[in-house]
């Protein structure tokens, strides 16, 4: 008996389905993961019950398969509800049912990267939809760029380990997650911890992972050390937990330690430059700058002045210190 007035599938029936009759292990059509259940949905269902029926279909083993509504099902399971309202679909065309569910999901809200990724992966590997069709038809449908690279990215995101997928939801960038996916778990874990706790943007994430990766690769050439050991030896672990510093200061100092470990010669050079510059005691309006990474043969000196008398004073001051040994050494650093 078809009770749902708008259901496009003939033979659909609205029923209260005991939870025990639903195959909780079959998540083959799911777009979301169990951990993606929002507390607000859980609270709503606890107060008001499930207001919108799930879409289910009978399986040959006598159980029901969830087609759409995996989060509601997860909430019901956690709340220990005895049954759920379900629209039981008679159609055996699983692809059609999946596409209807996808349509319902994407029109009701914006799907996350991971949900898009799961949808594309299901279409490709469960329903054998050719790549050309995925690119030309489904990427635009999901508001994604219509190219092979985007498809590849999402297919890879769909198989990331849970920990990285969870970090993705909290600010880890897609490219960073993929780069981390091939690395050991302790490395993934350290990077995710730093990225999330310091709320690093895309470029900083990239830089952090690259530097840490290279520092650890260099360390492992000497003797095998765990990621956390190297982190402690660098002095970063102590800084990470310094409560007397702001997060921005902590990050700045950690970055300086990482740079020192990754680029020791440059760091020593820069430190000597800073020492000499400080020893010059330049007047505050005068700025002295070395070329980037010391690539170049000239120092840049700039100043900000408001009147001719001030300029005259600064010029005399610069002339007075121009013969100092510090200047000689500063030029030799180039």
């Amino acid at each position: 008996m078809a009770l749902h007035p708008y259901d496009p599938v003939a033979g659909a029936a609205l029923r209260n389905v005991p939870l025990a009759e639903v195959d909780s292990k079959d998540r083959s059509l799911a777009l979301s993961r169990p951990w993606q259940l929002r507390p607000s949905l859980l609270a709503s269902i606890a107060s008001h019950g499930i207001l919108t029926p799930l879409r289910l279909r009978p399986k040959q083993n006598g159980l029901m398969q969830v087609v759409h509504g995996f989060r509601r099902f997860e909430a019901a399971r956690r709340l220990g509800l005895p049954s759920i309202p379900g629209l039981v679909l008679a159609s055996r065309n699983l692809l059609k049912l999946f596409l209807q569910a996808l349509e319902e999901g994407r029109t009701a809200r914006t799907l996350s990267s991971l949900e898009n990724a799961a949808a594309l992966r299901t279409l490709k590997y469960r329903f054998n939809v050719p790549e050309k069709r995925l690119i030309e038809e489904f990427l635009p449908l999901l508001d994604l760029k219509e190219n092979r690279r985007t498809l590849r990215l999402h297919l890879d995101l769909a198989v990331l380990p849970d920990a990285l997928q969870q970090a993705l939801e909290r600010g880890l960038e897609n490219e960073t997650a993929l780069r981390l996916s091939g690395r050991p778990e302790d490395f993934q874990s350290l990077c995710c911890r730093l990225i999330l706790s310091f709320q690093l943007g895309k470029n900083r994430q990239k830089k952090l992972v690259e530097m840490l990766d290279e520092i650890l690769a260099a360390a492992s050439k000497q003797e095998v050390q765990s990621v956390e050991e190297v982190w402690r030896e660098l002095g970063c672990a102590a800084l990470e937990n310094r409560a007397d510093l702001t997060p921005a200061d902590r990050w700045k100092r950690i970055l300086a330690l990482l740079r020192q470990a990754r680029y020791p010669a440059l760091s020593r050079h820069q430190a000597r430059f800073d020492e000499l510059k400080a020893a010059l005691k330049l007047p505050p309006p005068v700025r002295l700058q070395a070329p980037r990474y010391f690539e170049g043969s000239s120092l840049e000196i700039s100043m900000t002045v408001r009147e001719a008398r001030q300029l005259d004073g600064l010029a005399r001051e610069l002339k007075r210190i121009s013969g100092s040994q510090e200047w000689e050494e500063l030029f030799r650093l180039l």
Binding site: E214, A217, A218, K221, Y263, P264, A265, L266, R292, Y293, E295, G296
Partner: peptide, 9 residues
């Protein structure tokens, strides 16, 4: 790649 390689002009 682990050498002290830096961007140049």
């Amino acid at each position: 790649p682990l050498g002290e390689l830096l961007p140049t002009e």
